[in-house]
Nucleic acid binder design. Sequence first.
RNA 1: GGUCCGUUCGUCUAUCGGUUAGGACACCAGGUUUUCAACCUGGGAAGAGGGGUUCAACUCCCCUACGGACUGCCA
Length: 471
Amino acid sequence: MSLPPPNKPVVTRFAPSPTGYLHIGGGRTALFNWLFARGRGGTFLLRIEDTDRERSTPEATAAILRGLTWLGLDWDGEVVSQFARKDRHADVAREMLARGAAYKCFCTQDEIEAFRVAAEAEKRSTLFISPWRDAGPATHPGAPYVIRMKAPRTGQTVITDAVQGTVTFRNDGLDDMICLRSDGTPTYMLAVVVDDHDMGVTHVIRGDDHLNNAARQTMIYQAMGWAVPVWAHIPLIHGPDGKKLSKRHGALGVEEYQALGYPAAGMCNYLTRLGWSHGDDEFFNTDQAKAWFDLPAIGRAPARLDFKKLEHICGMHIAAASDAALLHELHGYLAAAQRPALTETQSDGLLRAMYCLKDRAKTFPELIEKAHFVLASRPIQPDEASAKMLDPASRGILQELTPQLQTALWTKESLEAILNVTAAAHGFGFGKLAAPLRAALAGRTVTPSVYDMMLVIGQNETISRLKDAAA
RNA sequence: GGUCCGUUCGUCUAUCGGUUAGGACACCAGGUUUUCAACCUGGGAAGAGGGGUUCAACUCCCCUACGGACUGCCA
């Protein structure tokens, strides 16, 4: 059922409303749509649902685009503005009127509200049935009206969902939804259907908060004689406590995750695997995800965000990425986190050190912390913990080491030999020697191995730093 | 209230009637070690509850409990 008809290419879309940042759940929805389309040589479209003029802002649209771009989700063609298509929506509403599939309702919002309050007080169904449903045109007053769908009152509407299976709704539980507001603008319910149809969308993959809407939207498709797309309602993401994701859970916007220093590939991997599975595969790249992704393998229960696992996956992606790609993404992270940009010298150093940095960091802040030895310049300012390693005795040893290093062959083997001999000469293990060395070289206690640091910064710089620390 | 959806280790999940219910993250213990990370070995840890159907149920059906969504001239 998730398979499109033969010869019909897949068309998916992501249709956020521009009222804020790109929510992490929205990012995942976009990712699923993108994966499904891209994995099948299909088309992935982007539509901004900006019909709510009060809440829609261009800033929000820009933020959504940035979030998608960061995740690497590229869309085909121009971004569609739903608002710009309002005339088309109104045309369809009138077409429904002409077909007898809709009717004009002259009830005011106050009247409807009064009905609802009364119904609730009497514990009756709050389902509003307009008295204008079967009224003839002759009785119509010259007053503002909305156009309501004339939904079937009997029988049932069945939707076939690629994730949820077959879901049946009794028609008498569905009201006559408003399609066109009294000001002539379309409601969401009408606009999505018209746009999805006009854009040729074959698969609607969206949050399962829309599952109920699918039934009513199906009615519009049927009223217009249009082919109903394949539905795929995916469960929403929850916070670690199982509750709906909200501010108190921390980062909500996709861009916040970038600012936190998670690599995009790791983010995509984690988000894809959250609520979807392909056997025991946990770690995969985008190409694999595109090849493997399919609708039936999406879980039906909401999944909780697990930052520990996100970090683990991200660590593996950092380790697997190329040095150049990592440096490039690091620049993006620094900008997103509003941290100072790297100088050219720092970038060069980082690139040379990347080999010993990338397999020991799970996030970019962590990587930068460990890269301090190559980012900082002399004199190295030791932090509190590493300053403790530079007691007088240790400084003496560093001093004694300097002449040996001056004549040393600058390879790991040779350095290893020198340091081991020195440590042994003082009657202690290499670890005892590494601590002050690390402090002198990096001014930090968390760094790559001392050999890697010496190799990366070179002989002259190493000796200078040791002298600085010994002084 | 009504309609609809969901429920396997702490978490993400595998299983699609027959398995000692598997993997990953996390956790615990041990090992390795030059800090952090990584790595190696081992360990504890699950089918919400109750009824059916069946030779056999985590898997199919029903009920209950719990969680969630929707119930706007928001999207």
